[in-house]
Amino acid sequence: MKKKNTSYIGISLIILVFGIIFIPKIIERINNNDIVESDRLNVNKSSKKGPEVGYIEQYGQRKKVPDFKFINQDGDTITNKDYLGKVYVVEFFFSTCPSICPIMNKNLVYVQNQFKDEENFGIASFSIDPEHDTPEVLKQYAEHYGVTNPSWNFLTGDRQKIYEIANTGFGIFADKDATVPGGFAHSGLFALIDKEGYVRSRNDEFGNPIIYYRGSVERNKSVIEGEEAPQIDILIEDINTLL
């Protein structure tokens, strides 16, 4: 009997020592989110993130931003390579647009302000009226809207090349049209680009990529049945995911 009691006491002491030494360390690791995938079984790293932001595929290839080279509002030459390493949003607009462009750029200023301390976020705004939208005009336009992000470039240059990038490169419609207000017809969509220059998108409720985000609907607009809903908040979520 004495032997058995001695064994119990020894086991109890081992358990007590283990608890004193190791349990506080385990609790500390949990609190610091230091438990890694190898500590668990079948853990998906993205399980705690928002919706997946997938690639857009065209002809079996991931869709990438077409090469471009234009002048910005400061007179500097900007290319697609200047955005490598950054998550950024692309839009097509013109400064005298009386309809959707003011809404689009008001939304983008809101997006800009959510990432004011993020150096790896940018915006590329391509003017579809480059004859009017000179660097000087675009500089005033940027100041009017309160643009502060140093990686938000308002780009101007050869009209045909800009239209080719819009219509062929992205598939975001832009063209001259004397029958519409302002004389230019264009889409109010935003493209989301990752750090490697690929076009990215979340899926809709049916599992299909939305491809582009609605930029021409006011972020806080009350939507009635049948109207398009704002997508600025989900754009912000997806920017965060890519960052």
Results as ranks from 00 to 15, higher is better:
residue 98 P to E: 08
residue 194 D to S: 04
residue 185 A to H: 08
residue 102 P to A: 12
residue 183 G to S: 05
residue 60 G to T: 11
residue 169 G to T: 07
residue 237 E to F: 00
residue 211 I to N: 04
residue 12 S to G: 10
residue 112 Q to I: 03
residue 22 F to P: 10
residue 56 I to S: 01
residue 84 L to S: 07
residue 71 I to R: 01
residue 106 K to C: 13
residue 3 K to A: 15
residue 196 E to F: 05
residue 141 Y to K: 04
residue 62 R to G: 10
residue 132 H to T: 09
residue 56 I to T: 05
residue 216 S to L: 05
residue 177 D to S: 07
residue 130 P to H: 04
residue 178 A to C: 12
residue 80 N to P: 12
residue 142 A to L: 05
residue 69 K to P: 14
residue 194 D to G: 01
residue 222 S to N: 14
residue 25 K to C: 09
residue 229 A to P: 01
residue 85 G to D: 09
residue 210 I to N: 02
residue 230 P to F: 06
residue 44 N to D: 06
residue 90 V to C: 03
residue 202 R to Y: 06
residue 18 F to E: 03
residue 166 A to S: 15
residue 30 I to G: 12
residue 174 A to D: 01
residue 50 G to I: 12
residue 23 I to S: 00
residue 173 F to E: 10
residue 103 I to P: 01
residue 62 R to I: 15
residue 29 R to N: 13
residue 77 T to Y: 07
residue 50 G to R: 07
residue 168 T to R: 06
residue 176 K to G: 11
residue 71 I to Q: 03
residue 186 H to G: 02
residue 48 K to R: 11
residue 118 E to T: 02
residue 194 D to I: 09
residue 65 V to I: 12
residue 73 Q to M: 09
residue 87 V to W: 02
residue 188 G to K: 01
residue 133 D to Q: 02
residue 88 Y to E: 02
residue 194 D to A: 03
residue 213 Y to W: 04
residue 14 I to G: 01
residue 116 K to Y: 10
residue 148 T to L: 10
residue 105 N to G: 02
residue 14 I to M: 08
residue 38 S to Q: 06
residue 15 I to R: 00
residue 103 I to L: 11
residue 237 E to L: 11
residue 33 N to F: 11
residue 75 G to N: 03
residue 109 V to W: 03
residue 167 N to C: 05
residue 193 I to M: 12
residue 184 F to A: 06
residue 144 H to T: 14
residue 10 G to I: 15
residue 95 S to L: 05
residue 142 A to V: 02
residue 91 E to F: 03
residue 172 I to T: 01
residue 213 Y to F: 08
residue 212 Y to N: 04
residue 240 N to K: 15
residue 100 I to A: 08
residue 61 Q to W: 00
residue 121 F to I: 13
residue 167 N to T: 07
residue 183 G to E: 08
residue 76 D to S: 14
residue 162 I to Y: 01
residue 237 E to P: 00
residue 120 N to T: 14
residue 5 N to C: 14
residue 176 K to Y: 10
residue 187 S to C: 05
residue 84 L to V: 14
residue 218 E to T: 01
residue 204 D to F: 06
residue 186 H to M: 08
residue 159 R to N: 13
residue 124 A to T: 08
residue 65 V to L: 06
residue 180 V to Y: 06
residue 22 F to M: 10
residue 186 H to C: 03
residue 131 E to L: 09
residue 12 S to F: 13
residue 229 A to D: 08
residue 243 L to W: 10
residue 15 I to F: 12
residue 155 L to D: 02
residue 111 V to I: 15
residue 34 D to R: 12
residue 174 A to L: 11
residue 185 A to K: 09
residue 69 K to D: 14
residue 235 L to Y: 02
residue 110 Y to G: 00
residue 205 E to F: 10
residue 221 K to R: 13
residue 82 D to V: 08
residue 23 I to D: 00
residue 142 A to Q: 05
residue 140 Q to G: 13
residue 8 Y to P: 12
residue 183 G to F: 04
residue 96 T to Q: 13
residue 158 D to Y: 11
residue 181 P to H: 00
residue 133 D to P: 00
residue 146 G to Y: 06
residue 94 F to W: 01
residue 11 I to F: 14
residue 233 D to K: 07
residue 238 D to G: 06
residue 119 E to K: 09
residue 90 V to W: 03
residue 59 Y to M: 11
residue 83 Y to W: 03
residue 103 I to S: 07
residue 111 V to E: 03
residue 54 G to N: 11
residue 170 F to C: 08
residue 233 D to I: 08
residue 140 Q to R: 07
residue 34 D to W: 13
residue 215 G to Q: 02
residue 169 G to Q: 00
residue 19 G to C: 14
residue 150 P to Q: 07
residue 29 R to E: 15
residue 6 T to Y: 09
